[in-house]
Write a protein that binds this DNA or RNA. Sequence first.
DNA 1: CCTCCTACCTAGGATAGCTATATAGTAAGC
DNA 2: GCTTACTATATAGCTATCCTAGGTAGGAGG
Lengths: 113, 113
Amino acid sequence: MEQLSPDANLLKGNLDLILLEILEAQPMYGLEIINEAQTRTDGYFDFKEGSLYPALHRLEAQGWLSGAFQDSDSGGPRRKYYRLTDKGNRALERKRAEWQRFGRAIESLRGRP
Amino acid sequence: MEQLSPDANLLKGNLDLILLEILEAQPMYGLEIINEAQTRTDGYFDFKEGSLYPALHRLEAQGWLSGAFQDSDSGGPRRKYYRLTDKGNRALERKRAEWQRFGRAIESLRGRP
DNA sequence: CCTCCTACCTAGGATAGCTATATAGTAAGC
DNA sequence: GCTTACTATATAGCTATCCTAGGTAGGAGG
């Protein structure tokens, strides 16, 4: 487990991409997303509920995700599972491209006199 | 020249890194930084003065940049040249490492079932 | 002079993630 | 039945940062 988490500002504008990446393969509910993000990044990503839920609502309002409540399979409160819509899949492609473009732009700044 | 500029939110938290990258090789003044960023990224980065100047002041207050006024060599108003301090160089290294780490974390989210 | 260009600066607004808390259902212990 | 703990979703208020939209001022050229 790594302790370091990213500067909060790095997430701005990238949280959408991150959520779409995680939900691309399979639908998940809120806390599951937080756990998955932690596991897959060795604890680097550690989203707070106060960041996650508004973001999920935002993406749902944009039509990129659709959420549906479902009873827990282990006896807890109901869970809201989010899955990517077709629109969300297209958005993911755009976000990936934008991320690549941004990275290339940063690199192109280096090594100049 | 490319028209597309990055989503404003992508810049949040990365503008510091960008400015340090640009100023690493040589000192520059405000508008020169804007022009250089445009040129080096084929117009992708197009910083507004309202973003740039507060950022420069912030970095100067943190001790990462030091600024000094200097008369223009082409007869305009005086220019404020910013150069990286030693502290700024160390900050640049940290920001680069953080950027790499963040990029790796994003990639590690992909291709999972 | 008067206009234009350069150059620096700032106030106010919008956005998005974080802190902290609220709400509620289920399960376990006594 | 009551309390405690865990899970799960939700949101109000804070803060940081970038952008919009201006302002100030010096020099060049007609």
